[in-house]
Design a protein around this nucleic acid. Sequence first.
DNA 1: CTTAATCGTTGACTTTTTCAAGAATATAAG
DNA 2: CTTATATTCTTGAAAAAGTCAACGATTAAG
Lengths: 160, 160
Amino acid sequence: MAPDEKNTAVLEEHGRLLASDLAGEIEFLTARTRSIGSLLANRELAPLNLKVRSYSVLSLACGPTPPTQRELAGFLSLDPSQIVALVDQLEKRGLVLRAPDPQDRRSKIIRATGEGVAVYRQAREATHRAEDAALGSLSPAERDELRRLLTKAAFPGGEG
Amino acid sequence: MAPDEKNTAVLEEHGRLLASDLAGEIEFLTARTRSIGSLLANRELAPLNLKVRSYSVLSLACGPTPPTQRELAGFLSLDPSQIVALVDQLEKRGLVLRAPDPQDRRSKIIRATGEGVAVYRQAREATHRAEDAALGSLSPAERDELRRLLTKAAFPGGEG
DNA sequence: CTTAATCGTTGACTTTTTCAAGAATATAAG
DNA sequence: CTTATATTCTTGAAAAAGTCAACGATTAAG
């Protein structure tokens, strides 16, 4: 078997099962899309010693409104204790820091350092490469539409 | 906190972070959509002693072309060893059985029993309720379009 | 002031994922 | 036919991820 063929085996022949009920369920299609997507994203992020999870935290920490750990947990659908571990790693590498929230001393605001921003820029390119690879079968317009629909699904309360 | 409010806390306020780069990434939106979807689906499936994973196996086993375990692994993006565990459980409950593949005695075809089909019918209603709850913010036309786009993303080689 | 709730943290526990190896069967080459 | 290589299911172990309850510090409510 070729060196990199192993992890791409996800894209094998499944012709017979495409006619199944399950293949028509959005829940299943979402799970499979995510599985392929995070496989490719993790592969691209590996050289930076990041995974999709740590990349997501770093990304939000680089944004214009750095979040508290509680906000990270809610936004990323993770348990607060998982955020602790993720921030610990990133902080140990000097990519983010825990800043006290002036409005609530219980909370800690996760903000990226200069180096964190630098690493994030590379990581963003990596995830964009992964997205190109994962969604290569969709046109730019289709990707925009998919993004719009998924946003409504992921944030039902949205901006309404 | 109200009795059932805990698990619905995923749908909190995230206004500030919706403007982040991350919120525009399809990979992230897919992960969040799946997280909400499988939470609701697992909740609906719990009374039947099923989870999304075992439901998926049961569903394919009920289909017109029962799959081998290898096909299940590829289609569901799971490791073959995970399929063993899932089929073990379902077989122990009498919902599926391992039939020898006449064309390849290494393979085992996973076929639903009569009771398996009966349970599946209830389970399908449960997951449809969950899908309605998860995608309540999308119109039927939008759901169809989302299904179409996700199918292209999940099966790049598709029916081409 | 007293009580209740929230945030980050820790630790324990379960589940899921990943990986390597083996027995049985199939395929390919000589 | 014999030998070598590959595939399928299975097992078991290890790593990673997810779940949950409890604690100190802080805030909010009564």
